[in-house]
Design a binder for these strands. Structure first.
Lengths: 129, 129
DNA sequence: CAGTATCCAGTCGGATACTG
DNA sequence: CAGTATCCGACTGGATACTG
């Protein structure tokens, strides 16, 4: 879309907000899927090999872990190091950019933990109607 | 799931992290969809009526806006006030809980803005291979 | 104006089988 | 062990038409 044109001159506060939303929306599209944050989560404790991750995360299919890692690698958030041994060994780790994502996620996670009871209460109330 | 049992006693650091991830995952399931943060975004500037929102957000279908708002209302993040006038008028606004979500989202949004160039560079590099 | 119901194409993601 | 390819059911979300 024509972000450039929109941010050119007039730039009302509203449109600035709107751009924030777009940026937010884009990264939520990336990290908001089913497995990405799980991967970032387990990698935040240190590098892992493919099958280790699969076990640690639990419930993720072979395919989806591959796709998720590929996507994170493409975005420069995760690095992939292959050792040409037999059997092959591949290690995944967070890059600096990947690590920088941990704090924002922790903030959100804290919010989630703080507000879970409130939300669950609201949900129960809503459903009893 | 047996979160209670898991957090009972041993509570290795790892399992704590894992619970954080679960909580995070749950709220990302809620806010990570296509429209939720857009709604929170526009409502952060003040209450709005249904069709106003639709215009402000742009690109959202009637149906999806309804569903998104319903979901946010159910979770107690958005309030819905209907005026029995003709034609009907319904105002949506963030609740206190809804407003408390703005800051965490802003943190993430800041990260997105800071890292967009890095990610786009990484993506371009990756695709040129 | 606000909301609901139906339809349907597109996407997502798990299961499975196969390769280096 | 790590990764790819194919298949296919399930879900998502837009378009449309209708109601109060």
């Amino acid at each position: 879309m024509n972000t450039a044109a929109a941010t050119q001159a007039g730039d009302l506060p509203a449109s600035e907000d709107h751009n924030n939303c777009r940026a937010l929306g884009q990264i939520l599209d990336r990290i908001g899927d089913k497995w990405t944050i799980m991967v970032v989560g387990v990698l935040s404790r240190g590098p892992l090999r493919f099958n280790q991750m699969m076990r640690e995360i639990g419930g993720v299919s072979h395919r989806m872990l591959t796709l998720t890692l590929r996507s994170l690698e493409r975005d420069g958030l995760v690095s992939r190091t292959a050792y040409a041994t037999i059997p092959p060994k591949v290690e995944y780790a967070l890059t600096d950019a990947g690590r920088s994502l941990i704090e924002p996620l922790r903030v959100l996670s804290d919010w989630a933990i703080d507000n879970r009871p409130v939300i669950e209460k609201a949900r129960a109330d809503f459903d009893n109607r």
